[in-house]
Each structure stands twice: as C-alpha cells, then as structure tokens.
C-alpha cells in the first residue's frame, strides 16, 4: 500500500521541504527557491497521476496498448511556464530590492524601513 503510493509520498516530502525553506529562511532568494520546489512537487504530482502503469507514451501507433493520460502533462506544461514567469518576476524584484536596500534578509529590510 505504502509502496504503491510511493510517488505521492515523494511529492509530499518535496512539498514540505519547499515550504519549510520558504518559512525558515529569511533570505529572499532562498525563499523563492523553496517556493520553486513546492511548485515542482505539485508538477510531479500531476505528472505521476497521468501515468498508467505499463502504459506507453501517448503517441499514435497501431498496437492498441494502454497509454498514459496526456492531459495532465499538457496542463503541467502550462504550469511550468507560469512557474518560470513567477520565478523570474520574483528574481527581478529581488534585484530591485537589493539595489534599494543592499541586503536580501527580509527581517533586516523590514528593520531598515522601521522608523
């Protein structure tokens, strides 16, 4: 049972690592990395749900074998694009923040604005 759901457990562990990083690290880039891991874990969740055991890649050919569900994979393609956009926007913001504050630690930044 546990082994059968191994792929899902892997996703959950990855998610938790990502979230933990986002919470525990005050560094803005590390937070983004954590968030990225969290997102990737979700992508894996989708991809593994589309997999049919013993199925072939969903490419048209003559033999009537079982094939994996292509839809989740396609969806995740979109999600990956969105993830890239988010990450790059986040990093662009981090560059601007660095220019403005000369630091990337969130607590320090908040402290500097505190007057």
């Amino acid at each position: 049972m546990t082994v059968g759901l191994f792929n899902y457990w892997a996703c959950v562990v990855l998610m938790l690592i990502g979230l933990y990083t986002a919470i525990a690290r005050p560094n803005l880039i590390k937070k983004l990395i954590g968030l990225g891991m969290f997102q990737v874990a979700v992508f894996l969740l989708y991809i593994s749900m589309g997999k049919v055991s013993g199925g072939t890649p969903p490419i048209l050919h003559t033999s009537g074998e079982a094939y994996s569900n292509p839809l989740p994979h396609v969806l995740i393609l979109t999600a990956i694009v969105v993830g890239i956009a988010t990450l790059s926007l986040g990093l662009a913001l981090v560059v601007r923040i660095w220019e403005a504050y000369q630091t990337l630690e969130e607590d320090e930044i908040v402290e500097r604005d505190h007057d």
């Binding site: 986040g90 913001l93 923040i97 930044i109 908040v110």
Partner: peptide, 11 residues
C-alpha cells in the same frame, strides 16, 4: 517598500 510589499504578495 513597494518592492518588498510586492515580493511578499508574490510569495
């Protein structure tokens, strides 16, 4: 501070 606000919103 708009930058950090935007970043926090992004997260």
């Amino acid at each position: 501070r708009a930058l950090i606000a935007s970043y926090q919103y992004l997260i």
